[in-house]
Amino acid sequence: MGVCWFVGLTTLDVVHRSPVRPGPNQKVTATRQDVAAGGPAANAAVTAAALGARALLVTALGAGPVATAARADLEAHGVEVHDVVAPGQDFPLAVSAVLVDDGTGDRSVVSADAALATAPAPPSGLLAGLPAPDVVLLDGHHPAVARAVVGHLDALEPRPRVVLDAGRWRPLFAELLPVADVAALSADFTVPDEVVPGHGGAAAAARALGARAVVVTHGPDPVEWTEGGASGAVDVPRVEARDTLGAGDAFHGALAAALAAGTPLPEACDRAARVASTRVAHVGPRGWLAEVRP
């Protein structure tokens, strides 16, 4: 398998599973609790590592206790963590509160994401000291980090393939879509009309902004892909949804790992859809990984 960089957000997820959702001023008792690292780039890195790729995470953690817990979980699952925050310096890492519905597997999330502080650009020499990647996934968080990585990639020969995780619009995507070899969009992703007037849909807008290929996920429905003049759809295996937390991240991590191994885009989408379905079929943020290890 290849070398994958995952660039972006890490959080600490506190996940409760409950048969009911609390109403106003109400408390409920959870049937299960899990604590694990979260965030799009971090979860994708965990998935890629489980699939056998060398997964490097470039993120902002800091030295606080929340970051220590997140780092320990990531490293326990085979992720090589590279922190852009100076050694010994604290950073307000977000703690995500997650509720998973025991009946449907649907998740609700409250998180500050990357809004608590501005992550610095990687320190001098950090990126140059990492093994050259085959694929780089960007999640659109931590703009200074993303811009530094894009600048670093421009100097590499051959230039690694760039995958953009685009779940919801962020202003930075106007800069990142032009460098994306594969833009992986959720069905809910939209591009503002002022960015691409009269674009005719998110996929068309992503292509107009420069993305060479576009993948659109639709939950349990087929994954659509477009590359060059070709397009198609990949069926998603039908499973009982037990836990949807991180399903999109699992898809993106598996997609990056497959592309890094040289798999053509349609087959990479098929593999990623199967991995995401496996994640949805299992309760908890990490137990499902044993089902996909090579």
Rank of each mutant, 00 (worst) to 15 (best):
S186T: 15
C269T: 05
S18M: 03
V179T: 12
P19H: 05
P266W: 09
D106A: 14
G88L: 14
P24T: 00
A49M: 12
A30F: 08
V84W: 03
L57M: 12
L265W: 04
P22S: 01
T217D: 03
A261N: 05
T244S: 14
L153W: 09
A187K: 04
Q33E: 13
V223D: 00
V196K: 09
V7R: 04
G229D: 15
T59S: 14
G78Q: 08
P294D: 12
T31Y: 05
P160S: 10
P266A: 12
R293A: 12
G88R: 14
E75D: 09
F189S: 02
H16T: 08
G151Y: 07
P266F: 05
P197C: 08
D102G: 10
A144N: 07
D102T: 09
V215E: 05
F6K: 05
D249T: 06
V150G: 08
A187W: 08
H252R: 15
P87K: 14
A256W: 05
V109D: 01
G39S: 09
D90T: 11
L57K: 08
W288T: 08
V149C: 10
D73L: 07
L176Q: 11
G103W: 00
D13K: 02
A76S: 13
P22W: 00
V81H: 13
T29R: 15
A166W: 11
V15Q: 07
A206G: 11
V66T: 15
C269V: 13
P40A: 14
L12P: 00
A30M: 08
L130N: 11
P143D: 15
A70E: 04
A166N: 05
V100A: 02
V179Q: 03
H199C: 15
A44E: 05
D243H: 05
D13W: 01
R54T: 12
V283N: 04
T31V: 14
A148E: 06
A241Y: 02
A49R: 02
H82L: 12
R21K: 09
T29W: 15
G167A: 07
H199F: 12
Q26A: 10
